[in-house]
Design a binder for these strands. Structure first.
Lengths: 223, 223
DNA sequence: GTGTGTTTTAAACATACGTTTAAAGCAAAA
DNA sequence: TTTTGCTTTAAACGTATGTTTAAAACACAC
């Protein structure tokens, strides 16, 4: 085991297995055998499986949120104070994901997939951890989005942010997509940037769609 | 146990627990104790946990897809052959969900949440089962959507359908939302129809957004 | 080289899971 | 009443999980 790179080997293996199979479906024995370390190493270095999960996310999210903050700084410090567009704000997100120092070529895919799982699998401890740890960046993103969509009612804005989150997290967490991506890792690059590029116009258009008119006619066309 | 309503009691309990906690996180012992039946009853009546999961879906999806088929029939049989809109097609989906005979007032929420889980949790057997069982309705929906968005390239249409699915399934499967919905079950009705009503303009706008222009300028604004 | 604090190891622990078994219970037919 | 077929029951099975233990191995300062 050379010198103690045990911690990193565990994090690498866990990250990949979690992304492939989810949290509950990945056992510590799978992780440690893939990492080539002893079973007890996880509890020795991380304390528990739950805090291993949190560590996997922290390793991703801390540099990502730092990059995102500076991306937001740039956007807001531009000459003239014209309004930011939804596209620009969403672009900052994917831009940060791409710019962020990558551990390997399909790092972004795994990152997105894990984010999707985080919201999808009901891991109470993870949700609390993420909300506590990255509250700042998230609320900054929210207020930027609020300024970019002044015409939306708060309740519609709330729901549409949920919709965006859903489209993104779900798409990224679809295991088939991941399989395809990993399968094409022989190609020049992962198509994840392309998915993001296709996603942004969809989200931006949805975000800025006219609000539902509450007339009888519109009502009837909707139920 | 009156007469043998054991099967239904198991299905009811399983459906609710699966929606709350996911498949892997719900044990047969939780299900049978909630249903008030013996542990062995599941394996006796359903054979295995996996086929119990499939039965839960079949009980939902079979009447739903029947309703949806007839809704599609109505749409297509309208006088004059003007083009269907995306809103109308999506409306048929939510319309079917609402019209479908409900077992209880928050049946739709649970139904949507389960659908989200089905795509999200990597249950290979479930995917196969759903694809085999409901292939027809799904491909009919796809071809309707294709006729409603002739300007889209096939690859963009494919991804945008994924995005729609994601926004819907994710929103409906957000456990917080479910908790709120169940919490307000004392109120007049579940707000799920309202969510659907807010969702449709978002999805329709996203679906019909102009495709990404592959010019250097647009490229730069996106990465 | 000895001693010390950290890391790794193999083994066991307690618990939970899905599934199976064999006996008991039960309703309707003979 | 006895028999028959289906259903329910309590108990056990085998396996897998996360976690803990105590000894061994190791690296490094003295």
């Amino acid at each position: 085991m050379a010198q103690s790179d045990t911690v990193d080997r565990i994090l690498d293996a866990a990250e990949e297995l979690f992304a492939e199979r989810g949290f509950a479906e990945t056992s510590l024995r799978m992780i440690t055998s893939k990492a080539g370390v002893n079973l007890a190493a996880v509890n020795y270095h991380f304390g528990s499986k739950n805090s291993l999960i949190q560590s996997v996310f922290a390793r991703f999210l801390t540099p990502f949120s730092a990059t995102l903050e500076s991306e937001f700084d740039e956007l807001e410090a531009r000459p003239g104070d014209r309004q930011l567009t939804v596209e620009e704000i969403l672009g900052a997100l994917t831009g940060s994901a791409v710019r962020m120092p990558q551990r390997n070529e399909w790092g972004i895919s795994i990152f997105m997939r894990l984010l999707g799982l985080a919201y999808t699998q009901s891991q109470g401890h993870l949700r609390e951890f993420l909300e506590d740890e990255y509250r700042e960046v998230f609320s900054r993103f929210m207020s930027l989005l609020k300024r970019a969509t002044p015409e939306l009612s708060p309740v519609d804005r709330y729901w549409r942010i949920q919709f965006m989150l859903g489209a993104t997290a779900f798409t990224m967490s679809s295991s088939d997509a991941l399989r395809d991506i990993l399968q094409t890792k022989t190609g020049v690059e992962t198509p994840i940037q392309e998915i993001a590029a296709r996603l942004i116009p969809f989200l931006a258009a949805g975000m800025q769609a006219p609000e539902l008119m509450r007339t009888p006619r519109a009502e009837a066309s909707v139920i």
